[in-house]
Design a protein around this nucleic acid. Structure first.
Lengths: 220, 220
DNA sequence: TTTTGTGAACTAGTTCACAGCT
DNA sequence: AGCTGTGAACTAGTTCACAAAA
């Protein structure tokens, strides 16, 4: 491990927004890396993602001193550091709860695989779906099999794509099976047990936010 | 219009987070309304959505004085006010760009219709898809038809569910056709023309944020 | 008495500005 | 000379606390 990472990563106090920006920086670095750019300043990286350079330096400083004064950041090295910080340097097994349209669409989503996320199974309660496979060969299993799959495949992330009424029950189940990170697509908010991280993607909330903008007639 | 809405809605300065919370309040009010509860205090509503009562009073105060001191908020009236503020008191026509798995799944999503959002057409460039319909009878059209559909159906919101490489081009097209509110599912960020509101749902960013949590080993 | 609406205090997050390193 | 890393200043957003209304 590089000496640049010696700093204690006082992760408890890294703001959520910083972690999201790290992903954005990484995307930009992938482009620079592919283009063969050897180094980039915080100002240039900021330009590239529409941000202020100071916030980039602050964000990176939570995790170490990756920059070289007078030069900037070494692109391949910073890329590697960010991939490691974000846990993208290894495969992560994912299960999807709910094999309806949304669950199936997510199972086929290319962007996930490219980042090392591997959907190993879908789960459903509908007997007509159980036992089948997606076009990519991902099996659709009964909920009863969840624990076994999680344990055997080392599943670390669950995606919840079930109807709203079943979401809390399903969350409690995946948590009971040992999964501690959940991406939730069901609307309405869940009671989240301590020690578990749930990220909500609430499509209705997003659309209503746009609707507000239209209703308010903001033309700025 | 009720006299409670007389206040100038200085909408320019309503924080984005406030608008999202309004949707959350509305959801909670729908439940209370269905249960026949006549009035609710900011403290009770806060409890219901896991927030502080003061922020609810502040949020609502941007739009008027809806409460009654000593009593709270009249549920049916506040529900109506929020529906109007969020533009949910009328039908909104929506188009979906990209009739792949994600686009098709979104077209079938029940939660949208319940809020007055009506998906009137999907658009794609794949000739094998053009001319077909979804199971719900929503037509899949060629991009050339976009302008006509937008104008004829009064489309106000576009959902972009095309591959990343095509997203900017598609955004520019829908904006050129007069749509000013866009829900974007493609990753990577877009150049957004002035006067247009784009809400990004970046699935990769969401998963990477969970991955960070796992990599950092936060068990709090 | 109860609860709103709101100024004041507080907190979190961003930007500025510059000392210090290469 | 140029750019990072970081304390200080600033900005936005939340919570407190209480006067005023019903």
């Amino acid at each position: 491990m590089s000496d640049a990472t010696k700093r204690a990563p006082v992760v408890e106090q890294v703001p959520e927004q910083t972690t999201t920006r790290l992903s954005v920086y990484l995307r930009c670095l992938e482009r620079l890396h592919a283009a063969g750019v050897p180094a980039v300043s915080s100002a240039a990286l900021a330009e590239c993602c529409g941000l202020n350079g100071a916030i980039i330096r602050k964000d990176l400083a939570y995790f170490g001193e990756f920059g070289v004064r007078g030069v900037g950041y070494h692109v391949p090295a910073l890329r590697q550091h960010l991939r490691q910080i974000l846990g993208l340097d290894r495969r992560s097994a994912v299960v999807i709860l709910g094999a309806g349209r949304l669950g199936s669409a997510l199972a086929a989503y290319r962007g996930f695989r490219d980042d090392g996320f591997e959907v190993v199974a879908l789960f459903d309660t509908d007997p007509s779906r159980i036992g089948s496979s997606t076009r990519d060969g991902i099996p659709v299993c009964a909920l009863d099999d969840l624990r076994a799959v999680v344990e055997r495949q080392g599943v670390v992330i669950a995606i919840i794509a079930v109807p709203a009424g079943a979401a809390q029950e399903v969350l409690d189940l995946v948590v009971a099976c040992g999964v501690r990170a959940v991406l939730n697509f069901s609307p309405g908010g869940l009671r989240v047990p301590a020690g578990v991280k749930v990220k909500n993607v609430d499509l209705t909330l997003s659309l209503e936010s746009l609707s507000f903008f239209l209703a308010a007639g903001r033309g700025d």
